[in-house]
């Protein structure tokens, strides 16, 4: 029961991170035709960051559960299909977990690497889904919205880079998020 409560708390933290990210993205803008999109891309992927930090801190048995919880929170903040979000979160979490198998995420560059690769994995995957679904809808005449272009990969890269840069700075704070102690890995 206490584990469920902790998972609920984690969901709350991820949702707050998503709300903060939305707030920053809505206000972000830049000059020129591509200004708003570039401005939005300069906001770090906070939800992924919270997920990756949690994967680095909490019990490895909970990697999939944490990804599921993050996907549930993230699906409420995006027009991307829920299954695409789920897949992206799982890949990001499992990638961070793979990194953690070989080294503890206790160095700045490792943290940057884990957060950046997570954001890159999610962003690239959602972009691919948008491209594939868009082309399918155009071919079949189905109702579709949004039209990603190949150039949007630059936005994904930018977000991943910003996330990687921000990760070492916010990691200590996110590492101490209250209410998650029941999910922490057991000490030897």
């Amino acid at each position: 029961m206490k584990r469920f409560t902790s998972l609920g708390v984690f969901f709350l933290w991820v949702s707050i991170a998503g709300a903060l990210q939305l707030l920053l993205m809505s206000g972000a803008s830049g000059p020129g035709v591509e200004g708003p999109a570039l401005g939005r891309a300069c906001v770090p992927d906070l939800m992924t960051l919270v997920l990756v930090v949690a994967v680095g801190r909490l019990d490895r048995r909970d990697v999939v559960t944490l990804a599921l919880v993050t996907a549930a929170a993230r699906a409420a903040c995006t027009a991307a299909p829920p299954f695409a979000v789920l897949c992206g979160c799982l890949v990001a979490a499992l990638a961070a977990d793979t990194l953690r198998r070989f080294a503890d995420l206790d160095r700045a560059w490792l943290r940057s690497c884990a957060a950046g690769s997570g954001a890159l994995a999610i962003g690239t995957w959602l972009l691919v889904v948008d491209l594939v679904r868009g082309s399918q809808a155009r071919a079949t005449g189905g109702l579709s919205f949004g039209q990603a272009s190949d150039g949007d990969f630059a936005l994904v890269m930018l977000t991943a880079a910003v996330t990687a840069l921000v990760a070492p700075l916010v990691w200590p704070g996110l590492h101490r998020l209250p209410g998650l102690r029941r999910l922490e890995r057991k000490a030897f």
């Binding site: 993205m25 993230r74 995006t78 991307a80 962003g123 972009l127 948008d130 949007d152």
Partner: peptide, 14 residues
């Protein structure tokens, strides 16, 4: 309920 999308290339609301 909210405005914006976590995908920077989209502009959506809820």
């Amino acid at each position: 309920a909210s405005l914006g999308d976590l995908c920077p290339w989209r502009s959506t609301g809820r």
